[in-house]
Design a protein around this nucleic acid. Sequence first.
DNA 1: ACCAACATTTGATCTACATCAGCGAGTAAA
DNA 2: TTTACTCGCTGATGTAGATCAAATGTTGGT
Lengths: 253, 253
Amino acid sequence: MAISNSNNRFSSKLTSQCQNCSLSALCLPIALADEDVNRLDQIIERKRPLKKGEILFHQGEEFDSVFAVRTGTLKTYNITNSGEEQITGFYCPSELVGLSGIDENHYPVSAKALETTTVCEIPFSHLEQLSSQIPSLKHQLFRLMSRKICDDQQMMVLLGKKNADEKVASFLLNLSHRFKKRGYSATAYRLSMSRGEIGNYLGLAVETVSRVMTRFQKNGLIDVDGKEISIINLPEMEKLVGAAGECATIEHV
Amino acid sequence: MAISNSNNRFSSKLTSQCQNCSLSALCLPIALADEDVNRLDQIIERKRPLKKGEILFHQGEEFDSVFAVRTGTLKTYNITNSGEEQITGFYCPSELVGLSGIDENHYPVSAKALETTTVCEIPFSHLEQLSSQIPSLKHQLFRLMSRKICDDQQMMVLLGKKNADEKVASFLLNLSHRFKKRGYSATAYRLSMSRGEIGNYLGLAVETVSRVMTRFQKNGLIDVDGKEISIINLPEMEKLVGAAGECATIEHV
DNA sequence: ACCAACATTTGATCTACATCAGCGAGTAAA
DNA sequence: TTTACTCGCTGATGTAGATCAAATGTTGGT
């Protein structure tokens, strides 16, 4: 895909730069030799930013790349036979989206930007080739996919067994952990998704999400101001979630 | 792990035999050259059968192998902080279990036999090494993990959005597809798990599972005799499930 | 600055499913 | 055979959260 130069603000960023990308330790957290980083750089395409609501790839489209989120947020979803949207995940900076397309060679979901979002496109066939030459890269890919499996299974437990309070608390703490990992505050952040999208994702009605958050605020667990969230009583929130899932508990590096 | 020779009935089977294993086309469905199959054979250990209730690996245990089910059925589950079991999956012959352990190098779940079950143990470090030398094997592994991600996400949709009827129907049809893929009848099979385990997996009470199945039978959709299930009205069942998930719809090879 | 469209909150009511309880059938041990 | 269990089925009742309804806030376009 040709790189757009229409916007000078970004063209300078659209160059090889895994070396100095602040996310490199996260998106493919491996100790690569300099020459290997260069090889990785060469296959990665930086794309122009997606505006809010723009689609990165469509459900059913042919799979060719995975994408690392650099800034902003994406959601993946599919459209059910009854025409409603079902959100299957949110993706923050440093996270990889598109792995589920490998199997069938088509993306089984669509990915849409929740806000202005930039991604690195990584053509999968190149990545796979490169992984043959760099064992640590291959291992890293296996780990990433394994983690995704693990995380999704925790999500299954959440959906199948937890009540509304536990779902919302898990969701807020999960985001907190993800922000913390990138060096941001774990206790104050901005939601990039609407209440409706949260409810859709958690298997709850919008009204329930709203009520639970309001109640959490009344009870001094969190502070809510529109999309701004502050976690006031972290221990109590964690208690609500319970020892949670093992994947989350063992704590990702 | 030493192979037990205490049981002659099995010792003859505990030899290299991916070539003539009827599942080989499924467990790692690749066109491998003969010599490659041999190399794969050499790293695989066939273990003595597990009896019903025996544990293949425990949650928290160090990860070293993935396992291909040859006969029988396994369930994976984890124990929540409140001490209850949460089933995260059932595994039939030809299916691979343990992939979620790669990331943290520990199994995040336990795996237990639901009936007498035999598995092939595949030490992951060897498999990974071998995959460096056989690109098609590496690709196959990526595909398998991708499919698992895809399937789990469909399960998330099921748990989050479907009602009891749709859950049970999806479950029964999913098993049907898995039996069919292995060449068995898609319309008559035996459940290896209890109603309680089905309910646990689907996020339903036992009583609900029982009631739904009874109602399905009354309505001529299925025939139930204890653990024996016959699907009488397949089209109607499929309608109940809806166009379902994309992963399932595009149809695995 | 204004208006239209949409997002969020709150209250009232409804319902799918959980929970509780009781029953019969199968199975294993004594 | 009896006792003790476990498993599956069915009926009665309770409840978490969905749905319906309406007011209020927020946002983007012109």
